[in-house]
Amino acid sequence: MTTLSKDDTTLIRLTLNGREVEGRASPRLLLSDFLRHELGATGTHVGCEHGVCGACTLRVDGVMARSCLMLAMQAEGAQVDTVEGLAPQPDRLSVLQAAFRRHHALQCGFCTAGILMSLDTLLRDEPDADRTRIEEVVGGHLCRCTGYAPIIDAALDAAAELRGGDHV
């Protein structure tokens, strides 16, 4: 069995939330760990490490991905979007984040980053998403605190606001 030395790393360059960044990664380092420990983007959480809970969900080149199932090296040259990039300005929440706040759609907050990323992607790609579609997307996430109702209400509210309609 070969042990990798500390020098056995590769330089990884990617665009993180619109900013060019780089860091070093061993061949087996997960993207979630690279983001958290090498780049300091700690909003992406790691729960199950099997891609089941959804806490590590982010976007790679515009497509949702579970960062605990992806190697850092696979993100070379990619556009990676995490929850830290959702807010349009440091002092202003996105429409979806503000709806989560209004509807108390988070409690401990551990699952929230992944859910926000999935719902943000859904509302971007399917602005007319209905309750059933939102429930399908949220169903891919494990939340032990909220019971999902406030999350779904927040997503419906954000969808209505983004379409210019009435809030829930």
Score class of each variant (00 low, 15 high):
1 M>F: 08
2 T>D: 13
2 T>K: 13
3 T>H: 15
5 S>L: 14
5 S>K: 15
6 K>T: 15
6 K>H: 14
8 D>F: 14
11 L>P: 03
11 L>M: 13
11 L>V: 14
15 T>D: 08
17 N>L: 08
18 G>S: 13
19 R>C: 14
19 R>K: 15
21 V>R: 15
21 V>W: 12
22 E>F: 15
24 R>D: 09
25 A>D: 04
25 A>W: 03
27 P>H: 10
28 R>E: 10
30 L>S: 07
30 L>E: 04
31 L>R: 03
31 L>Q: 00
31 L>T: 03
34 F>T: 00
38 E>Q: 14
39 L>N: 06
42 T>G: 03
43 G>C: 02
46 V>D: 01
47 G>D: 01
48 C>Q: 05
55 A>Q: 05
55 A>M: 05
60 V>Y: 03
61 D>E: 04
63 V>D: 11
68 C>T: 02
69 L>S: 09
70 M>D: 02
71 L>T: 09
72 A>T: 10
73 M>C: 14
75 A>L: 04
76 E>G: 12
76 E>S: 13
77 G>F: 04
77 G>S: 11
78 A>S: 15
78 A>L: 09
79 Q>N: 08
83 V>S: 05
83 V>K: 05
84 E>G: 08
84 E>W: 10
85 G>T: 12
87 A>E: 10
88 P>S: 11
88 P>K: 14
88 P>Q: 12
88 P>M: 11
89 Q>N: 15
89 Q>S: 15
91 D>M: 10
91 D>F: 08
92 R>D: 05
93 L>E: 01
93 L>F: 12
94 S>L: 05
94 S>E: 04
95 V>A: 03
98 A>W: 00
99 A>E: 02
99 A>T: 00
100 F>V: 00
104 H>P: 01
104 H>F: 05
107 Q>P: 04
107 Q>A: 07
109 G>N: 09
110 F>E: 02
112 T>K: 00
115 I>Q: 10
116 L>P: 01
117 M>F: 07
117 M>E: 02
120 D>R: 06
120 D>W: 06
121 T>C: 14
125 D>F: 13
126 E>K: 14
127 P>Y: 13
128 D>R: 12
129 A>L: 11
131 R>L: 13
132 T>A: 13
135 E>I: 03
138 V>N: 08
138 V>Q: 09
139 G>N: 13
140 G>R: 07
140 G>S: 13
140 G>Q: 07
141 H>A: 07
143 C>T: 10
144 R>D: 09
146 T>K: 08
147 G>R: 02
147 G>M: 05
150 P>E: 07
151 I>V: 14
152 I>G: 03
153 D>S: 10
158 A>L: 09
159 A>T: 06
159 A>C: 10
168 V>Y: 00
